[in-house]
Design a protein around this nucleic acid. Structure first.
Length: 271
DNA sequence: CACGGATCCTGATGGC
DNA sequence: TGCCATCAGGATCCGT
């Protein structure tokens, strides 16, 4: 469910409300991808300073340390007072006097990890190799180009790897490549300068537009207040195999790359 | 060190 | 209705 826009929309939906909240209790459900790292009692009494995002991680700053939360493939967050009794897929609750933050994640590819600081090796193991933020000033065309120059793999795979630029997941990778007219199978290091420039711009455009629209709701995305996003209405190629391209009417194709589905228009996107 | 593949887990969906 | 195979928004780990 969550690529950068969904994570950012989620963050925006509860960051203001939880800030300043004092942790009353916390509970863990079934194990997530990694152990929390501290007993939940250690969180009690701490104050939530604020919530940031790095790539697809939510960083929940506490008085002493921070929680790194990842939504994996199927994670979502709810925040509020008087939440229902935790269900089978509610694997983390952080109850504060401003409301309870709850992570629901059926597949449990997500994670909640405690680190004493962002520089803590525990945090750096997760954040250390991440690429630049696509919507920030650090996402420069020249460094993007030199990053791609070192990769012989398909451009789609490079985008997903997240070590050059973060936040582009399976949906937005297909969409950004469509917008820039690049075949997903093209080798990253063979893209011409103008094509890299178009891709650079397309990544920014597609992600920022999705954030504005409130995230993607392809299956079941909703933010911490339960509000759904609308990106699905705008997908140009994702999940549209066999349907006509919205620009040229050619049939949208679906292929597999690294066990993930890729969608593209064979006419609009040149190898 | 860059690459491709296997892997974690549960639920939805479609074919028979 | 049941059973089985396939697929799903992510990212790490491991062998080459």
């Amino acid at each position: 469910m969550p690529e950068l826009p969904e994570v950012e929309v989620t963050r925006l939906s509860f960051a203001g409300a939880i800030a300043g909240g004092k942790v009353v209790s916390a509970r863990l459900g079934k194990p997530l991808r990694w152990p929390l790292g501290v007993p939940v009692e250690q969180l009690v009494g701490q104050t939530v300073r604020g919530v940031r995002r790095r790539g697809k991680y939510l960083l929940i700053d506490l008085t002493e340390g921070l929680l790194l939360m990842h939504l994996g493939m199927s994670g979502s967050v709810v925040f509020g007072h008087g939440l229902p009794v935790a269900g089978a897929h509610d694997h983390f609750d952080l109850k504060t006097d401003r409301g309870t933050l709850r992570l629901n994640d059926p597949r449990r590819f997500g994670a909640v990890v405690f680190a004493t600081a962002e520089s803590d090796p525990v945090a750096q193991k997760l954040l250390g190799k991440l690429g630049v933020e696509p919507l920030g000033d650090d996402f420069r065309l020249d460094s993007f180009r030199s990053g791609l120059a070192g990769r012989k793999t398909a451009i789609k795979q490079v985008l997903l790897a997240g070590d050059i630029v973060v936040g582009v997941g399976n949906i937005y990778a297909s969409e950004a490549l469509f917008l820039s007219g690049i075949r997903p199978t093209s080798k990253a290091n063979r893209l011409s300068r103008p094509r890299v420039e178009r891709l650079h711009q397309a990544i920014r455009d597609v992600l920022s537009r999705a954030v504005e629209k409130g995230g993607c709701t392809l299956r079941d995305f909703s933010d911490a207040n339960g509000d759904a996003g609308y990106f699905q209405l705008e997908a140009m190629v994702y999940a549209r195999a066999g349907q006509p391209c919205k620009i040229c009417a050619a049939e949208v194709r679906q292929i597999r790359q690294g066990q993930r589905s890729t969608f593209f228009c064979p006419k609009c996107q040149k190898p």
